[in-house]
Amino acid sequence: MKIKHFFLSVLAMTVLLAVGFNAQAAQAPLKEVKSAKGNVSGANVFNRLLKKDTQRNAAPAEDGIHDPANDGTHVLQPPLIAYDGLPTSEFGNYVDWVKSLDDGLLKPRYDLFDPTVEPLVMDLDIVREVKASMPDVVFPHKPHTQWLHCSNCHPKIFIPQRKANVMSMSAILLGQKCGVCHGKVSFPVTTASCTKCHSKPKAADWKPPKSEASLQNPWR
């Protein structure tokens, strides 16, 4: 009995130690994030495999992909120093890059050598009707042309022809069309970011369209 108790206590102690050690190693320079999830009791935390939003913007040496044994890693700038004062967002780098640019907080160059070159900004919204009940997609050219050149998307990714660009969320999630950038570098495809694209609500009398099969059904 005693041996068992001793074993259990040692096990509990070591697990606590290990957790504490890991937390200590990663905690020091990181910002703690308060979320609505943090206020609920432990009974509601059901999926232990989901990544938790407690640590963001780790410094290179603690981020898991840089090798801390490499001297150069410790010379690199930690992201939180660069993000100081920039507007925040709920996903990606947790920085609202488009707003930072609009507010003049960032002045990234449009030309490698000449800092005075201004981008060719085109302010044109494209509305894409969504067949399902999700709000329609409004594609704003403005923030895209502020960062990119026309040739980045046209004609290879988005074919300049009506009805030639068939898009679906599964294609985007797997890296086609919008997913060439969104979900990799520009804001990610998460449940928090749906409404960034799906932003035009359906009309009040909207009804789901009938499929070809049901329209051609002779027993209708």
Partner: peptide, 15 residues
């Protein structure tokens, strides 16, 4: 993140 603070996407991905 480090590079987009200094350069727009166009510089590397187009030029």
């Amino acid at each position: 993140w480090y590079h987009r603070i200094r350069f727009r996407c166009k510089v590397c991905h187009a030029d």
